[in-house]
Measured scan of single mutants.
Amino acid sequence: WVPTKREEKYGVAFYNYDARGADELSLQIGDTVHILETYEGWYRGYTLRKKSKKGIFPASYIHLKE
C-alpha cells in the first residue's frame, strides 16, 4: 500500500459496491470517500458519512475530485 500523494484526496462513488470481506468498504452511489492509500487498482479509506469504518474498495468505482 502506498500513501496518497496529496494530503486531502477525495472521490465520489459512481457505482454501488458491496463489501465481500471484513477488510472491504461498502459504497453507495454518491458517497464521498477520503482516500488514504492506493494499491494495484484499489483504494483504502473511509466514507464521510461513516468515518469510523475504514476499508478497501475498487478504484474503478470512484471519480476523483480535483
Score class of each variant (00 low, 15 high):
Val12Glu: 05
Arg49Asn: 15
Leu36Val: 06
Lys53Leu: 11
Ile56Met: 10
Arg20Phe: 06
Ile35Thr: 01
Ser60Cys: 14
Thr47Gln: 07
Tyr43Lys: 00
Asn16Trp: 07
Ile62Leu: 02
Tyr15Ser: 14
Lys53Gly: 05
Lys65Pro: 07
Arg44His: 08
Glu24Leu: 03
Asp18Ser: 12
Tyr15Gly: 14
Tyr46Met: 03
Glu40Asn: 14
Thr32Gln: 11
Asp23Gly: 13
Val12Trp: 07
Glu8Ala: 12
Arg44Ser: 05
Phe57Gln: 04
Pro58Ala: 06
Val12Thr: 08
Leu64Ser: 02
Ala19Gly: 06
Ser52Asn: 13
Leu36Ser: 06
Leu48Gln: 03
Leu64Gln: 03
Phe14Ala: 14
Lys54Ala: 07
Thr38Leu: 08
Lys5Asp: 15
Asp18Leu: 10
Trp42Asp: 00
Ser26Asn: 08
Pro3His: 04
Asp18Arg: 10
Gln28Met: 12
Thr47Pro: 02
Lys65Tyr: 15
Val33Ser: 00
His34Asn: 02
Leu25Arg: 00
Gly45Leu: 04
Tyr15Gln: 15
Ala19Cys: 05
Gly11Lys: 03
Tyr15Leu: 15
Gly41Ser: 09
Arg44Val: 09
His63Val: 14
Ser60Thr: 08
Pro3Met: 03
Ala59His: 05
Thr38Val: 13
Pro3Asn: 07
His34Ser: 06
Leu48Met: 12
Glu37Asn: 04
Ala19His: 01
Gly45Ala: 01
Val2Asn: 10
Tyr39Thr: 09
Lys9Asn: 06
Leu64Cys: 07
Thr4His: 10
Ile56His: 03
Tyr43Val: 01
His34Ala: 13
Asp23Ile: 06
Gly30Trp: 07
Gly21Ile: 04
Lys50Cys: 15
His34Trp: 13
Ile29Leu: 05
Lys5Ile: 09
Ser26Trp: 05
Ala13Thr: 04
Asp18Thr: 13
Leu36Tyr: 06
Lys51Ile: 10
Ser60Tyr: 07
Trp1Gln: 06
Tyr61Ser: 08
Thr4Asp: 07
Lys51Val: 12
Pro3Phe: 04
Ala59Gln: 10
Asp18Lys: 12
Gly55Lys: 04
Gly11Gln: 05
Glu7Leu: 09
Lys54Tyr: 12
Tyr17Phe: 08
Pro3Ser: 09
Gly45Trp: 07
Lys65Gly: 08
Lys54Glu: 08
Lys53Arg: 10
Ala13Gln: 02
Gln28Gly: 04
Leu36Pro: 01
Gly11Thr: 04
Ser26Gln: 06
Gly11Trp: 05
Ser26Leu: 03
Ser52Lys: 10
Ile62Gln: 00
Tyr43Ala: 05
Arg44Thr: 03
Gly21Gln: 09
Gly11Leu: 13
Thr47Asp: 07
Asp31Lys: 01
Ile29Phe: 05
Lys65Thr: 13
Val2Leu: 13
Asp31His: 02
Ile62Arg: 00
Ile29Ser: 06
Ser26Phe: 04
Ile35Val: 05
Glu66Gly: 13
Val2Ile: 13
Phe57Ile: 01
Tyr46Asp: 01
Leu48Cys: 15
Glu66His: 13
His34Asp: 00
Gly21Thr: 14
Ile29Gln: 07
Lys5His: 11
Ile29Met: 07
Pro3Asp: 09
Lys65Ser: 12
Lys51Tyr: 09
Tyr43Pro: 00
Trp42Asn: 00
Thr32Met: 14
Arg20Thr: 09
Asp18Phe: 09
Gly30Pro: 00
Tyr17Pro: 01
Ser26Arg: 03
Lys50His: 14
Leu48Lys: 04
Ala13Val: 13
Lys53Phe: 08
Leu48Glu: 12
Tyr39Gly: 07
Arg6Phe: 11
Tyr61Glu: 01
Ile62Gly: 02
His34Glu: 04
Gly55Ala: 02
Tyr43Met: 08
Tyr46Arg: 04
Ile29Arg: 10
Val33Arg: 02
Gln28Pro: 00
Lys51Asp: 10
Thr38Asn: 04
Arg44Gln: 05
Arg6Ala: 14
Tyr43Arg: 00
Phe14Thr: 14
His34Cys: 15
Glu7Ser: 13
Glu8Lys: 09
Lys9Thr: 11
Leu48Arg: 04
Trp1Pro: 07
Lys53Asp: 08
Glu24Asn: 02
Pro3Gln: 06
Val12Ala: 02
His34Val: 15
Glu40Cys: 12
Ile35Gln: 01
Leu27Gln: 02
Asn16Gln: 11
Gly45Asp: 01
Ile35Lys: 00
Glu66Thr: 13
Glu24Trp: 04
Ile35Phe: 04
Ile29Ala: 10
Glu66Met: 12
Arg6Gly: 13
Asn16Thr: 08
Leu36Arg: 01
Asp18Ile: 13
Leu25His: 01
Leu64Lys: 00
His63Thr: 11
Lys50Leu: 13
Lys65Arg: 12
Lys51Glu: 10
Arg49Asp: 13
Leu36Glu: 07
Asn16Pro: 12
Ser52Gln: 10
Arg20Lys: 13
Lys51Met: 09
Ser60Lys: 14
Gly55Phe: 03
Gly45Val: 04
Lys5Tyr: 09
His63Arg: 14
Gly41Thr: 05
Leu36Asp: 04
Lys9Gly: 06
Ile29Glu: 07
Leu36Gln: 06
Asn16Lys: 11
Tyr15Met: 15
Tyr10Ser: 04
Pro58Val: 06
Glu24Met: 03
Tyr10Cys: 13
Ile29Gly: 02
Glu8Ile: 12
Thr32Phe: 14
Val33Ile: 04
Lys5Asn: 14
Gly21Lys: 10
Leu48Ala: 07
Glu40Met: 12
Gly30His: 04
Lys54Ser: 09
Trp42Glu: 00
Arg44Asp: 00
Ala13Cys: 11
Thr4Ile: 11
Tyr39Phe: 12
Tyr17Leu: 00
Gly11Asp: 02
Leu36Thr: 08
Gln28Asp: 05
Gly45Pro: 01
Gly41Gln: 06
Thr32His: 14
Ser52Gly: 10
Ile62Phe: 01
Arg20Cys: 09
Trp1Ala: 08
Glu7Ala: 11
Ile56Ala: 09
Lys51Pro: 15
Glu8Met: 11
Val2Met: 09
Val12Met: 06
His34Gln: 05
Thr4Gly: 08
Gly21His: 12
Ser60Ile: 10
Gly21Asn: 15
Tyr15Thr: 14
Glu66Lys: 13
Lys5Cys: 13
Thr47Leu: 15
Lys9Val: 10
Lys65Val: 15
Thr38Gln: 12
Ala13Ile: 03
Tyr10Pro: 02
Gly55His: 06
Gly21Leu: 06
Tyr43Gln: 00
Tyr61Trp: 03
Gly11Ile: 06
Gly21Asp: 09
Ile56Ser: 04
Asp23Val: 07
Glu7Pro: 11
Thr32Leu: 15
Glu66Tyr: 13
Gly45Cys: 07
Glu8His: 15
Pro3Leu: 05
Gln28Lys: 14
Gly45Arg: 03
Asn16His: 09
Glu37His: 06
Lys53Pro: 04
Tyr15Glu: 15
Ser60Glu: 12
Tyr46Ala: 01
Leu36Met: 10
Thr4Trp: 13
Ala59Ile: 10
His34Gly: 05
Ile29Lys: 13
Gly11Ala: 01
Tyr46Gln: 02
Gly41His: 06
Leu25Val: 07
Gly41Ala: 07
Tyr39Lys: 15
Arg20Ala: 08
Val12Leu: 05
Ser60Gly: 09
Ser26Pro: 03
Ile35Leu: 14
Ser60His: 13
Asp31Ser: 06
